[in-house]
Simulated assay, not measured.
Amino acid sequence: MRKITCYLFLILIMLTVTGCGYTREEKKAMKRYEKQGRENAKNYIKEKYGFDAAIKKLTCETYNSGPVPDFSPSPTGNVFVKMNYHGEDFSVVISGENTNTDGIDNYQLKKIATALKQELYEITGFHADGVYVSYGEYGSTNEEKNGMIHTFYDGENLAEILQNESSRAVISYVNHPVDQIPVSEVSWKTGVDTMLLVDYESQEAYQSVCQPYYNLTGWPIENGIEDQLYLVNGYRVVNAGEDSYMKCEKKIQDDIILITEKPEERVDLEKSVLDSPDNWNGNGFIDAKQVADAYDVETGSAKVYVYFPVRKLNTKDVDRAQLVKQYQYQGRTCYDNIISRVTDDGRYIHGIVYTRDELEIKISVFVDQK
C-alpha cells in the first residue's frame, strides 16, 4: 500500500510539473530573445571575422535547475546559435536581451588545434598522431561547445588564448618517448599546462582506441587510460606543477597480460582452483558460472592491471563477463567480483587487482547465468 501511495504521489508531481509549461510572458520573452539574438549573432561574427554567416539553428539558453527534471526551465536571455560559413559549422552564444556584439564562438577551434599541433612539432621535431584540446567557456570535448571564446586568434596569440581559457590537451604518439618531451617549453610556448602524453606501441594500437582523449575535461585527466595500458609503452601526466610518468612494461603468462605501476615489481601467475562459484552469488552475481581457468597471483605490488584474453573464455556472453577474486583476509575467505570492462579492440577483459593486506589471491572470469 505504501509503494502504491508513493507511485501515485510521484505521478501527481509529474503531472503538475508538465502541466505548468511556459507562461505567456515567458513565451513572448523567448521569441524576443530569439529575434534579437539572431541579429546580434550575425553582427558579432561580421564584426569579429568580417564575413556574413548563415544561421542553421537557434535556441534559447535556459537555466539548469539541477538533477530534478524541469520541463519548462526559465530562459537566461542568451541564445545558442548554430551557424555555417563556406561549409564550416560553428557555434555562437550571445545575449538576446538587447542589441550587442559581445558573444563567444568556436569558429577558430580547428585552426587553434592545428596551430597547437604545429607548435608541438616545432618543439619536439616529431609529429603527434593525435592532438585533442579542450578549452573555453564550457570546458567540453563536445564539438558544438568546445572552444567557445571571445578572443580572436591572430596567429600570434596561441599561448595567450590557451593559457587564459583553462586548456587541457591529450597528445598521442607512436613509439616516441614522451618522458623526454620538454613539457616546460611546451607549456610556455602553447599555454597548455595540463596535458596527458601517451606513447602507443604501434599505429594499429593507437587506431584501435575509440576515445584517445580519455578524461580530457575532468580530473584525473588520465582517467580511463587503464583500460588500454596494454597498448602503450608509457604515459605522462603534467598538471599544476606535477609531472609523473608511468612505464607500461608488460608481463605475459598464458596470454594474460599483467602490468604493475612500477616495472620492477614482480608479478606471477600459477594455475589454481577456486572454491564453488556459488560463493560469489549475492556478491555481484545471482547464478555465477566460472568460464576461465583460475590462477594464483603472486606479487609484491599493491595494484596489478590484468588483461584476460576473450578468446580463452568458455562463453559467448563476453559483455557480461567479469573478473573475480578469491582471497584470505584476517583469517577468512572472501569472494569479490572485480569491476571489469572489455577493451576497445574486443580482445581482453580488463580489471584491476588490488592486493592490500590480502593473502592467497586467486583470479578467474565468471558470467551470471541469470
Rank of each mutant, 00 (worst) to 15 (best):
Y85K: 13
P75L: 06
Y63V: 15
K82W: 07
L58E: 14
A53K: 02
A115K: 15
M30C: 04
K57S: 12
N106W: 01
S95N: 10
V133Y: 00
T101Q: 11
Y135V: 05
G77D: 10
E47T: 13
G103C: 03
Q36K: 13
E122I: 05
K27Y: 03
E61A: 14
K117Q: 14
F51D: 14
L109R: 12
C60P: 11
A54W: 02
G37Q: 04
V79H: 00
R38K: 15
T76S: 12
M83T: 15
D105I: 05
S72T: 14
Q36V: 14
D105L: 02
N106H: 05
T101C: 10
G37I: 05
S134I: 03
A29L: 05
T101N: 11
S74I: 00
T114W: 04
D52Y: 05
L120S: 07
Y49T: 10
I94K: 01
F71L: 05
L58D: 11
N106A: 06
N78D: 14
V68P: 01
F126M: 13
E34Y: 02
Q118K: 10
K48T: 15
L116Y: 06
Y85P: 10
G50C: 13
H127V: 07
A54G: 13
D70A: 02
K110N: 12
D129V: 03
D52I: 13
V81I: 02
L116R: 04
E47M: 09
N40Q: 00
G96Y: 01
K56P: 02
L116H: 07
P67F: 03
E34C: 06
C60R: 06
E61N: 14
S91K: 01
K57T: 04
T59H: 08
N43S: 06
Q108H: 00
P73E: 02
T99Q: 12
N106R: 00
S74R: 01
T59V: 13
I123F: 04
A54P: 00
I94R: 00
S134E: 00
S72W: 02
V93R: 01
F80E: 14
S95L: 01
P73M: 00
Y85H: 15
E97T: 11
A128D: 04
T62P: 05
V93P: 08
N40W: 03
Y107N: 05
N106Q: 08
T76I: 08
K31A: 08
